[in-house]
Amino acid sequence: MRITVNGTDYPVPDDVRVSLLDMLRERSGLTGSKLGCNQGACGACTVLLDGERVLSCLTLAVQAAGREVRTIEGVAAAEGELHPLQQAFIDHDGFQCGYCTPGQICSALGMLEEFRRGDPSHVTADLAGGQARFSHEEIRERMSGNLCRCGAHNGIVAAILQFADAGAGE
């Protein structure tokens, strides 16, 4: 069994204690996913596992065997052009130090997919009402699993809104 990361297959580490995050960072040269707390309390390590946002620090690499992992390195187009959400983060200054940024971006991509399929959130007023209204408050709640210590939150929310609005117009 192999782990597919951004379309490329990687071997499952022999030591099953290795987290998906450490496999990416220390054994695969993919250091875009960040280690912040290593215990599920900051979101910096967020990646997409079979399209769902998860914490790679609490996922054993071996649990990802046979699955597709998408990391920040797999977000931009292959020819190097930035993903529109990445560009929106730059446009709205949705980061300062840049350390939580890959996790924020991967988390936002997962979040938008959850939203699209109608998943409610803690702040959704009507649980049975289908897709919730896309609001600042919805984004904030759904992104609360990603800490940012520089305080770029306003820019992050604005970037996500810009990207989502552009998508809605397509």
Partner: peptide, 19 residues
Amino acid sequence: YPMLSRALLSGASAQIRNM
């Protein structure tokens, strides 16, 4: 059982709930 949905959604973060 809206209380169950709300309880789940108030727990942890979306990433953790996905796992």
